[in-house]
C-alpha cells in the first residue's frame, strides 16, 4: 500500500490565521447543540445560503443579515425523540432533513416551508432501525436500515412537502452499510462503506450492486466522505475514526484511495495525519468538501487538512468557552462552521 510507505508531511506550525472568524451565532434557547449545516432558502424572491442548527429537541433556521450578522427565522419543535443529525440535501431549496433517535436513528423527518399555507412544516419520511443516511442531489435520500433478518438499502425521492412515491431499493450487501457517498458527476453511481471495511458500488438507477472491494486497511469501519471518478479509477476519501497511531501509518485521519472497479484492486494515493502533538485516539467527527477535510480532535481542537497535499493547514484550538464539538463545511470549502455544545456556532472563512 503506497500510502503506508509515505512519510506524512505536516506544516510545522499550522496556524489559526488561515481561518478567519466571520460571524458568530448564539442560540440563547439552545442548551445542547448536536449538529449544524447550511441550506439554500428562498425568501422574498431571493435565494440565500442559510444556516440550520439542531439541538436535541428543536431545529432552527438562520438567515444572513448585513454586516455578517444572522437572524433566527424559525424554530421547528420536535417531539420526544432527540435529534441526532441534520441531513442536508445538496442542491435543494427550502427543505432539509433531520435524523432522530436514541442510540441509533429511528426516524427521518423533512423540515420545509409550505408556500400554500405560508407556514413552516415538518413531515415524517421514514422510520426503522436506520444505520446510515445521506442526502443526494435532485432531492433524493439514501438510507440503510436493518431488521433482524435483513438489511434494506433504499433511495427515496422527496417532493417539496414530503416523501414521493418514486423510490428505488438497492441490492444490499451482506454486511451493514455505515456510510454513503455520491460519485461526483455520475448521477447513477453511489458508493458505501461497510462494517467489515468494504467499499460497495451501486447503480442507483437499476438498483444493482456492481462491486464489492476491500479497503485493504487494518482498521475497521472506515467511513466514506467523498467519491469521484477519473481516468477509469474510482477515488474515495475515507476517514478512520477508530484508527490508532502506528509506526508505519503515523496517525491517519483521512486517506484518499484509488480503486480500479474492474479488478477491485486499490492503492493509497495520499493520507493526512494528525498535527504534531495530537497522538493517541484521534478525532470525534469530521467533514470533507472538495479537497478540504476538517475534524474535531479529542483534544477539543479543530484541524483542517488539504487532502491533495496531505497537509494539516489550520488548527483551531479550543476557545475560552470550551472545546469544539462540531465542524462542517458550508456548501463550499471556503466557509467552515464550528460549533460548541452550548449552541454557539462560529463561521470561519478558510
Amino acid at each position: 500500500d503506497v500510502a503506508e510507505q509515505l512519510t506524512p508531511v505536516l506544516l510545522s506550525d499550522p496556524r489559526e490565521e488561515s481561518l478567519q472568524l466571520v460571524s458568530k451565532l448564539k442560540d440563547s434557547s439552545s442548551s445542547c447543540a448536536v449538529d449544524v449545516s447550511t441550506v439554500w432558502w428562498e425568501a422574498a424572491g431571493s435565494r440565500e445560503l442559510s444556516v440550520v442548527t439542531a439541538c436535541e429537541s428543536s431545529v432552527s433556521l438562520w438567515k444572513p443579515l448585513a454586516s455578517d450578522c444572522w437572524a433566527k427565522v424559525y424554530t421547528w419543535q420536535l417531539g420526544e425523540i432527540p435529534v441526532i443529525q441534520i441531513v442536508a440535501l445538496p442542491d435543494a431549496c427550502n427543505l432539509v432533513c433531520i435524523a432522530l433517535g436514541d442510540l441509533e436513528i429511528g426516524e427521518i423527518r423533512l423540515l420545509f416551508y409550505s408556500s400554500e399555507n405560508d407556514s413552516f412544516k415538518q413531515s415524517l419520511v421514514k422510520t426503522g432501525n436506520i444505520k446510515a443516511v445521506l442526502g443526494l442531489k435532485d432531492r433524493r435520500l439514501v438510507s440503510s436500515s436493518r431488521t433482524v433478518q435483513e438489511q434494506q438499502v433504499e433511495v427515496l425521492s422527496l417532493s417539496e412537502t414530503g416523501r414521493s412515491k418514486d423510490g428505488q431499493t438497492l441490492m444490499a450487501p451482506e454486511e451493514t452499510v455505515l456510510a454513503f457517498a455520491e460519485v461526483e458527476d455520475m448521477r447513477d453511481a453511489l458508493v458505501g462503506t461497510t462494517v467489515v471495511n468494504s467499499i460497495v458500488i451501486w447503480n442507483v438507477k437499476t438498483g444493482q450492486l456492481l462491486k464489492k472491494m476491500h479497503v485493504g486497511y487494518p482498521y475497521p469501519a472506515s467511513i466514506c466522505h467523498r467519491a469521484y471518478a477519473d481516468s477509469g479509477l474510482l477515488f474515495v476519501v475515507l476517514s478512520h475514526p477508530h484508527a490508532k497511531e502506528s509506526e508505519s501509518c503515523g496517525n491517519p485521519a483521512f486517506r484518499v484511495i484509488a480503486f480500479n472497479p474492474k479488478t477491485a484492486r486499490s492503492t493509497g494515493v495520499m493520507f493526512s495525519s494528525l498535527p504534531p502533538g495530537h497522538s493517541g485516539r484521534q478525532y470525534l467527527e469530521g467533514d470533507v468538501k472538495d479537497t478540504s477535510a476538517a475534524a474535531v480532535l479529542t483534544s477539543g481542537a479543530i484541524a483542517v487538512w488539504d487532502l491533495q497535499l496531505g497537509h494539516c493547514t489550520a488548527l483551531l484550538p479550543p476557545g475560552p468557552d470550551g472545546s469544539w464539538a462540531l465542524t462542517r463545511w458550508a456548501t463550499s470549502s471556503a466557509c467552515l462552521l464550528a460549533g460548541q455544545r452550548d449552541g454557539t456556532v462560529c463561521l470561519y472563512r478558510y
Binding site: 453511481a189 471518478a229 479509477l233 480503486f259 474492474k262
Partner: peptide, 23 residues
C-alpha cells in the same frame, strides 16, 4: 497509479459493471 498495480483499467467501468452484474 500504474496499470500493473491495479490491473487493466477501463474508462467505461460503470457501464461494463452494470452490464455484467445481476439485475
Amino acid at each position: 497509479c500504474s496499470e500493473s498495480d491495479l490491473g487493466p483499467i477501463s474508462l467505461n467501468w460503470f457501464e461494463e459493471l452494470s452490464a455484467e452484474a445481476p439485475p
